[in-house]
């Protein structure tokens, strides 16, 4: 007995009730590999990672990315990259960067000379 619905479109499907011992409908890989999507809002801005799409090829990934990540607001450009082609650093190695923010010698704020100049001026003009 097909499912009877309020929706005539569902009735046209002639869909049968899912049986109690329903096995898998999909096999591994049926929904394709995933692609990481990078979105540029306007020319001149950078591309940012916005999420993923599942697709059989980069061309299809691009078509789906336009629909999924470009359907609202501004979009100037998109990149798609197969997730398998991205090499990711291990989060466990995060600590190699732990001391980086304190490396003031790499930072403009690490160089303060005004006090010296003021002291020098005060001494020589005084």
């Amino acid at each position: 007995m097909p499912i009877l619905s309020l929706d005539p479109r569902v009735n046209r499907l002639q869909a049968e009730q899912v049986s109690d011992d329903q096995g898998p409908v999909l096999a591994a890989g049926d929904h394709w590999p995933s692609y990481q999507v990078f979105h540029q809002r306007r020319r001149g801005e950078k591309h940012s990672s916005v999420g993923i799409v599942h697709a059989p090829s980069s061309e299809m990934a691009m078509a789906l990315a336009k629909e999924q990540y470009g359907r609202r607001g501004e979009t100037s450009n998109l990149w798609v990259v197969c997730s398998a082609d991205v090499l990711e650093m291990d989060y466990a190695d995060e600590d190699v960067f732990r001391t980086t923010p304190s490396k003031s010698y790499r930072d403009p704020a690490g160089y303060k000379v005004n006090e010296k100049i003021d002291a020098f001026k005060a001494k020589n003009q005084g």
């Binding site: 059989p56 997730s83 398998a84």
Partner: peptide, 11 residues
């Protein structure tokens, strides 16, 4: 689908 496509977990 392409024969050489293989599943990979999203990042």
């Amino acid at each position: 689908s392409r024969a050489d496509a293989r599943y990979v977990t999203p990042l």
